[in-house]
């Protein structure tokens, strides 16, 4: 919104003729660099796996750290069982519900607090106080309130997600340019128009920041809930595996959790790319 530095890589001539950017050599340099980084990543991962495989059994007993080969074969076998898929679907349900509820309330409260000064004056310290509770400590309480089923886990996850979303959105509200809002009022815009065309798009970046950060937090909430008391779910499975000294199963469970989080992140990124297309077009690309 403010004046920007006018040096650009995408050159645009004064008379309106759009000149192709002179970046072919730079693009190939970029590509080479990316390839180098990718190779480095693969090598690093392989090295870590090799070390893991090497010390398993030889230096550290296999029942403690398992080994990559047994984790992989275990994961494959597990994914062919019906119970594993039940666990995954229960955890996925808890994850999606907890995430959605936390996100909706986080955005709602963030917007309210950001638009009504009196509310934020009264409730800001209260919310900060509640956020000070180590939320995992509330798990037994949620169990008491919502029982053994999925809802105690949903509550735990949404509680954590709420705060992540709330703080992102509230800060986003404070960063909206008051001049832009006032200017639209001068143009005759009513509240609804300002909300749709100015406020909501201004919030898109903080909302997506919150949506992304929230995915792994939602998983933490769900898994903690399943650790406390459950009879289904990936967290429950991991706990069982641990109690049976089945370290390969434990690692498989963790891999499945990571996969679920990564899928969630991908979905958010996909949506983000569709919504924040305008942001990519900036000068500093």
């Amino acid at each position: 919104m403010s004046t920007r530095i006018e040096s650009r890589s995408t050159a645009v001539a004064v008379d309106g003729e759009i000149v192709a950017p002179k970046t072919s050599s730079r693009a190939s340099r970029d590509r080479k660099w990316r390839l180098k980084v990718s190779i480095g990543q693969v090598v690093a991962i392989l090295a870590i796996l090799a070390i893991w495989q090497g010390i398993s059994g030889a230096i550290i007993p296999a029942y403690l750290i398992s080994s990559p080969t047994s984790v992989i074969s275990d994961t494959i076998t597990l994914l062919q069982t019906h119970t594993m898929w039940t666990d995954i679907s229960v955890t996925a349900q808890e994850l999606i519900l907890g995430y959605a509820i936390g996100v909706v309330f986080g955005i709602l409260v963030g917007v309210l607090m950001g638009s009504i000064k009196f509310l934020s004056g009264v409730f800001e310290p209260i919310i900060a106080g509640i956020n000070g509770i180590p939320k995992i400590a509330l798990a037994p309480l949620f169990l008491l309130w919502f029982g053994l089923g999925i809802w105690s886990k949903v509550a735990q996850a949404s509680m954590i997600v709420f705060f992540v979303m709330y703080y992102n959105v509230y800060m986003g509200m404070l960063s909206i340019s008051p001049m832009l809002v006032k200017l639209f009022q001068v143009m005759g815009a009513k509240r609804g128009y300002v909300a749709r065309k100015v406020v909501l798009p201004s919030l898109s970046i903080p909302i997506f920041a919150g949506l992304k950060a929230s995915v792994p937090f939602a998983m933490i909430g769900v898994i903690v809930g399943e650790f406390i008391a459950a009879d289904k779910g990936v967290g429950y499975f991991v706990l069982q595996a641990t109690q049976q000294f089945d370290s390969a199963g434990l690692f498989s469970g963790i891999i499945i959790m990571v996969a679920m989080v990564l899928i969630g992140m991908r979905i958010v990124t996909f949506c983000q790319n569709r919504v924040l297309f305008w942001q990519k077009q900036g000068h500093g690309r």
Binding site: M179, K182, L183, Q185, V186, M187, G188, K197, W278
Partner: peptide
Amino acid sequence: IVSSDVGYITQDANLLPWSTVLDNIMSP
């Protein structure tokens, strides 16, 4: 805020970054 048939061209452009040039001009 005065909003009856007035226009204000501010010192900073104050455009909507998420709207194209045409959409920006069309918004009022």
